[in-house]
């Protein structure tokens, strides 16, 4: 894996965390209960922390001078972001948010477990080792909610089943192998996505069973995020997130 590919691999880790953290930040003050407001912001905070670490590391691999995490977060355009389409999906209702989180959490967890154990990039390993503890808690939180909503009332069951059906088409992208995944896996930094998929399937299936939810069929999967081709809502997310640093490009805050 060359330097630029290495940087891209780290950008993907940072971008996934950043965009999901940004989405969760939108929830602040709007959750179904005060306790849940605190839980969602906790997860957002963890994700923004992971973002800072991964993007700083990615920025240190820039060809000429070092890029900061903020330069990468606030001064790249849509086509340069490499996050999964899943994490940029709008919050929808609480069920949509929880299902999005749940589908991502286990992928993020198994990926972090691999990164924490590799020696190609020991800085990334250290970030992942810290992140694992956080993601375990996120996965626990989202799984329990999927179960409560799935096995709660008729209304909640049907709502969360709909969320699952709707978001399922974004799960394929997590396991679609491209050039970065191939060289990343060869270097040891990135996991073999087939083995992640096996673990992910069994974790997801176990929770869905407890939740009395039906796992959707794998139909046509949406992808593009990893190569910078996003869904329409993503432009709005970036416009909002980047507005201030772009209006005052030379300012420090």
């Amino acid at each position: 894996m060359n330097k630029s590919q290495h940087k891209q691999a780290l950008l993907r880790l940072g971008d996934d965390a950043l965009i999901l953290g940004q989405r969760l930040g939108e929830w602040c003050g709007h959750a179904p209960a005060l306790e849940e407001d605190i839980a969602l912001t906790n997860i957002a905070l963890d994700l923004i922390g992971q973002t800072q670490s991964y993007l700083s590391l990615a920025g240190s691999l820039h060809e000429d001078d070092t890029q900061t995490d903020d330069q990468l977060a606030f001064h790249r355009i849509e086509r340069d972001f490499q996050n999964l389409l899943l994490v940029e999906q709008p919050n929808g209702d609480f069920g949509d948010t929880i299902v999005r989180q749940f589908l991502f959490d286990y992928y993020a967890l198994f990926r972090a477990e691999h990164i924490a154990s590799q020696v190609f990039d020991i800085d990334a390993a250290a970030i992942a080792a810290k992140a694992i503890k956080e993601i375990r808690y996120h996965a626990d939180h989202s799984s329990k909610w999927v179960i409560r909503l799935g096995d709660g009332t008729d209304e909640s069951h049907s709502r969360v089943q709909k969320s699952l059906n709707k978001l399922w088409k974004f799960t394929g992208e997590m396991f679609t192998v491209d050039e970065i995944d191939i060289v990343g896996a060869a270097s040891g930094l990135l996991p073999d996505l087939d083995s992640i998929k096996t673990k992910w399937d069994s974790a997801i299936n176990a929770v869905l069973k407890d939740a009395t939810l039906k796992r959707p069929e794998d139909g046509w999967m949406q992808k593009g995020g990893r190569s910078g081709i996003h869904t329409e809502s993503f432009g709005f997310l970036l416009a909002e997130m980047q507005s201030l640093p772009r209006a005052y490009p030379d300012a420090t805050w």
Binding site: E35, I38, A39, N42, D140, K144
Partner: peptide, 8 residues
């Protein structure tokens, strides 16, 4: 949930 909330 109470334990999770208490933690947060």
């Amino acid at each position: 949930m109470a334990i999770g909330n208490a933690r947060d």
